[in-house]
Amino acid sequence: MMKQCVAAAFFLFVLAGCTTNSAANDIYLIPQNYEGNVYAFYNVKGAPEIQKEGDYQVYTINEEGYFATSTPDMDYRLVTDKYYYVDENGERTRINEDCVRGMGAGSFENGPESVNQIKIKYTGIEVTKNRCGQEFKDSGNGMAQDDVEPVLAKVVARYYGVDLIE
C-alpha cells in the first residue's frame, strides 16, 4: 500500500509539473504610434491588479509610457511576450518583435525602516518604428537611470503623494 501511495504522489507531482506554465506570458497594449521606453511598475500601493487574457497577463500602457500594478512582482521565467499597438477604438495591431527590445529590470526602495515604506520593482522595454531589426535589438545597453527616474517619480507622486524630485 505504501508503494502505491508513493507512486500516486509522484504521479500527481509530475502531472502538476507538466501543467505549470514555465513562461512569462505578457501582453503589452501600447498606445498607437507610441515610440520610446515602456515601463511596468510592480508592488505599487493602490494600483490595480494585473488583468488576464487566458494564460497571458495584460499590461495596458498609458500615454506616458507606463503601467503600474499592485501585483507584488514580475514573472521571472521564459519571456513569451506579445506587443500590440492599440488605437482609440481598442483595435490591436501586432508590433513586429524586431521593433521591441528588453531593457532589464530594477527596483526602488524609500524608507526601509518606515511604516510608509515604498518598495517598487520595475521592468522596461523600448519600442521603435524606424530602427527595427537585429541591430536595434542588439544595441540595447540596459535601463538608464536618467530615463526611468522621471517616470518612477510620476508613479510615486501619483500613488504615494511623495515628491522624489526636489
Rank of each mutant, 00 (worst) to 15 (best):
2 M>V: 02
5 C>F: 14
8 A>G: 07
11 F>T: 07
12 L>N: 05
13 F>D: 01
14 V>E: 03
15 L>D: 01
15 L>M: 14
16 A>H: 08
17 G>C: 12
18 C>H: 04
25 N>R: 13
25 N>Q: 13
25 N>A: 06
26 D>G: 10
28 Y>I: 03
28 Y>V: 06
30 I>W: 02
31 P>R: 06
32 Q>P: 00
33 N>E: 13
36 G>L: 10
36 G>M: 11
37 N>R: 08
39 Y>S: 05
40 A>S: 13
42 Y>F: 15
47 A>C: 11
47 A>G: 07
48 P>D: 15
48 P>F: 14
49 E>L: 10
49 E>M: 11
53 E>C: 01
53 E>R: 10
53 E>Q: 14
54 G>I: 06
54 G>P: 01
54 G>M: 03
56 Y>R: 06
56 Y>C: 06
56 Y>L: 06
60 T>M: 02
61 I>V: 15
65 G>N: 05
65 G>R: 05
66 Y>C: 01
68 A>G: 03
69 T>I: 04
69 T>E: 08
70 S>M: 13
71 T>V: 05
72 P>W: 10
74 M>D: 12
77 R>V: 08
78 L>E: 12
79 V>P: 07
82 K>W: 02
85 Y>M: 09
89 N>I: 00
91 E>M: 10
92 R>T: 03
97 E>L: 07
99 C>V: 04
99 C>N: 14
100 V>Y: 05
100 V>C: 08
101 R>H: 13
103 M>Y: 04
103 M>S: 01
107 S>I: 00
109 E>R: 13
109 E>S: 13
109 E>I: 14
111 G>I: 04
112 P>H: 09
113 E>H: 10
113 E>A: 12
114 S>V: 04
115 V>Q: 10
117 Q>A: 03
118 I>L: 11
119 K>V: 02
119 K>S: 10
120 I>Q: 09
120 I>V: 11
121 K>E: 11
122 Y>I: 05
122 Y>Q: 04
123 T>F: 04
124 G>E: 02
130 N>C: 01
131 R>N: 14
131 R>K: 15
132 C>M: 07
133 G>R: 14
135 E>M: 08
138 D>Y: 11
140 G>P: 02
142 G>H: 11
142 G>L: 13
142 G>S: 09
143 M>N: 04
146 D>M: 09
146 D>G: 08
149 E>C: 00
149 E>D: 13
150 P>D: 07
150 P>R: 11
151 V>D: 06
154 K>H: 05
154 K>R: 14
155 V>L: 02
156 V>E: 03
165 I>G: 01
165 I>Y: 00
